[in-house]
Nucleic acid binder design. Structure first.
Lengths: 198, 198, 198, 198
DNA sequence: AATGAATGAGCGTTCATTCAT
DNA sequence: TATGAATGAACGCTCATTCAT
């Protein structure tokens, strides 16, 4: 009998440890040797669990997206009013800003190297696209696609600004502003379902 | 002396031709050979004008930022009402979306590989940070930093979404929505200077 | 004690299954993993029965040579006239051409990687050299070494041509021609013992 | 202006220097590093002249076959009688035995790694197949395909025996024997064109 | 100024081999 | 006995960079 190892579990452990490395250096700049060293294994072991670098990266992104959706979904469920959710969103963004920045680096890297390969229509990518969308939908408690997209863009933008090093953007302040905006907009242009969950 | 003029001019020509290459492949993935080939010169020539790959990239980003600021400033000057500017912004984003996506790729790449090197305080980076900020300030005709940041984030987010392949985000629609939001917000929370340029 | 029998038997089984793999890919190109997979065992098992790849290969060649000699010797015994034997040789070559090609690949591979290690004088190699020699001697029923060598070279050459992909060489035709040659030669230059086994 | 180098000429020089290495170690066992070191260049230079190892090997074989045909054709032209040619063949085989063994190693290696890729019908391979054939045809001064094939097989066989380390095969003796065989055969079975070139 | 041949460290990957189970 | 996870040296190959011309 061989060494007893839960293959799939170990794979996920390796992936989790990879996250920071890919995010900080970028796909093309991080080397398999560096990854192996950082994870405390040999390159051979890396290749025992993943056929190649690209596959390792794709599994990493996949895993990341899944976890993100799971977490966001769970967190949003317990909140009922839009106000609560606005605060939760701000907190969520702020507390996990580093994570979101890294996550965004990965997504950007991924999109850049998958271009022109029809990945846009893949189930993988669709699930990924639902990510913020579902988060935002849940938050707003409505199905106004334009409004949801607006919030999604805003959230992305906040992250991108921080990612680019613009520390002067105040996440909490911006989220509050967003809340006010939404309220003012809905009041002016009318909305029959002002509170989610009702 | 005339040599110097040619030298600098040729440098800028080379940089302009580099833009797409770096944006599409990413800094780490594009090779000096590929660049040289695409520019129709030898690698030796490339190294004659730039000491190394990193310097070439930095000059490219620098040049790009300068051009962007110049163009945006010039375009905004002639417009007077917020409505005009909102429309101009939408048009600007839409018409040059490809350019903005590429530009963003470069900025992201740049920030990723400059990390932990104190570039954030460099004059280069500060000028760069003023980029959207000045664009937005001009657009709004006000000095409400939070509002300006909000718009900046929104613009960034729209670009990021498209960069990530989410073609369902409608740029025009989103800009219109943004216009309405701003209006509703200013109406509700009061603002003494509703129109720029007055 | 019974274990030992099984052990050796299993070794031979493994070797037989290896034959095609080494012949088709060559010693350096076939991997222990591929061999193990093809044999339906683990690499660990392979190493349990053979200390390393080289040893596995040498045992394979050894085994192959022994079997070849045994088969050839057995087949030739029942035939009495030179004509019978000429036909048998043709048939033998033709029917087992694939096998002979593979066998030759192994021998060539073996000789190439044993060079400059004095294997030429090893009992292993001497036994191997007797291979065709004994086959040819038996066939001709004489001890004219030059003639035997001639036939051996011819047989080798036919195999080599086919191995190299020259399918235009007709084995049966060539064997018939060889038969006529030998007859014509012996008739002209005289030979007191025209028929073997007398 | 770059360093002045006759690209094609240098390529051929490199190929000539490669010959022994590939012949002694075999395609799969020789490494690009070893080749580079032996040729006194860097691996980068090797890859500057050949896109990859396979291509290097194929060019080597191609070049070898061309040279071989050229040499054989030139040498045979001046000889008129079959007797002269028989002697020349023996001398040729004997004097260049080492070369022929190496050449055969390359051809065998080549055939083994090109299998199942339809190379058999390629112009490259056809030219190669004409190699011995044309040599033998020239030698015999006739178009009896079977007889030519017979000689070709014999020559191949002699080389293969030596390649396998069987030094007891006497090349001169065997060639003489072959000459007698042919004579005896032609006398017995008749042949209207006993002398080539007449 | 401009070329491209040359370099060699370093990349992604493989593979014979070991060893805990 | 049998397994397959783990190792790391070494492979084919790349690429930023240098330099003779």
């Amino acid at each position: 009998m061989p060494k007893i190892v839960d293959h799939d579990l170990y794979r996920k452990e390796l992936l989790n440890k990879c996250f920071d490395l890919f995010a900080q250096k970028g796909y093309a700049s991080i080397t398999m040797r560096q990854i192996a060293k950082e994870l405390g294994v040999s390159t051979g072991t890396l290749y025992h669990y993943f056929p190649n670098k690209k596959s390792l990266f794709e599994h990493l992104v996949e895993e990341m997206v899944q976890q993100e959706i799971a977490i966001a979904t769970a967190d949003w469920k317990t909140l009922t009013t839009r106000q609560q959710r606005a605060e939760a969103l701000g907190k969520y963004l702020l507390c996990n800003l580093d994570y979101h920045i890294k996550s965004s680096y990965l997504m950007i890297d991924f999109s850049q190297h998958q271009d022109s390969q029809g990945y846009v229509d893949s189930p993988f990518w669709l699930r990924l696209c639902e990510r913020y969308q579902s988060v935002i939908y849940e938050f707003l408690g409505l199905e106004d696609r334009a409004l949801a997209d607006f919030m999604m863009c805003f959230v992305d933008g906040v992250i991108l600004e921080r990612l680019l090093g613009n520390d002067r953007v105040d996440v909490v302040e911006q989220c509050t502003l967003m809340g006010k905006m939404i309220s003012a907009y809905l009041e002016k242009y009318g909305y029959e379902k002002p509170e989610p969950g009702n």
